[in-house]
Design a protein around this nucleic acid. Structure first.
Length: 193
DNA sequence: TAAACGATGCCCT
DNA sequence: GGGCATCGTTTAC
């Protein structure tokens, strides 16, 4: 079942852990979310900290929309915009467990272990074919990318909490969430608390 | 117009 | 587990 706007129109720290176990679908490829990070305009690690700019306008738009930005000049990273329009909050999708279209993912990603097909924010956008052109598109079922609730046949994951990765500002905030015991999370593993 | 800076990934030890 | 390539966007003159 596709997630609705009301799911995203909540505090970003509630939405982020709830996204663990949900499914990202783009074309023939899809994956289970196993790692996310929350970002909010009130803290300096967030792109929206500087306010509304051409780059962050999507972040300040309505919830349930994809915020796709370029990272380190090369990679694309995908977020789901949260909270009320105008707030400036989003959840960064950091890692997936590949579900459908694994052959196509291998084709796009090259020769890597299957655990590494989507084990990072730049990797998963490459594997699913998500580019900057999808910035601002809806995630609610009426756009190219869809976010579905956890499949009924999958057990509810145990969610671990930790600090965000690759940032220098507000690095101490425990705003990273990942599925316990998943081999598909990005590099620095999270210990059980 | 120019310089600095990453919400990273890859290859090497 | 750690260091470095890489280049668009942002911010400062």
């Amino acid at each position: 079942m596709t997630l609705e706007a009301a799911f995203f129109d909540r505090p970003v720290l509630e939405v982020a852990p709830d996204l663990i176990g949900c499914v990202v679908v783009h074309g023939p490829t899809s994956g289970i979310i196993v790692e996310v990070e929350a970002y909010h305009h009130s803290e300096p690690a967030c792109h929206g900290y500087v306010g509304v700019t051409p780059r962050t306008s999507t972040l300040y738009g309505p919830p349930g929309v994809a915020y796709v930005y370029r990272s380190y000049g090369i990679h694309a990273c995908m977020n789901a915009v949260c909270e009320r329009e105008g707030v400036g909050a989003a959840v960064l999708i950091r890692a997936l467990e590949p579900l459908d279209g694994v052959g196509l993912m291998r084709e796009r990603r090259g020769a890597v272990r299957d655990e590494d097909l989507c084990s990072g924010p730049g990797k998963l956008t490459q594997a699913l074919g998500i580019g900057l052109d999808l910035n601002g598109t809806s995630l609610l079922g009426d756009g190219p990318i869809r976010l579905d609730a956890r499949p009924a046949d999958r057990p509810a994951p145990t969610v671990l909490t930790g600090t965000r990765i690759g940032i220098t500002k507000a690095a101490e905030l425990p705003w990273r969430f990942c599925a316990a015991d998943s081999p598909h999370v990005s590099r620095p593993r999270l210990r059980a608390a």
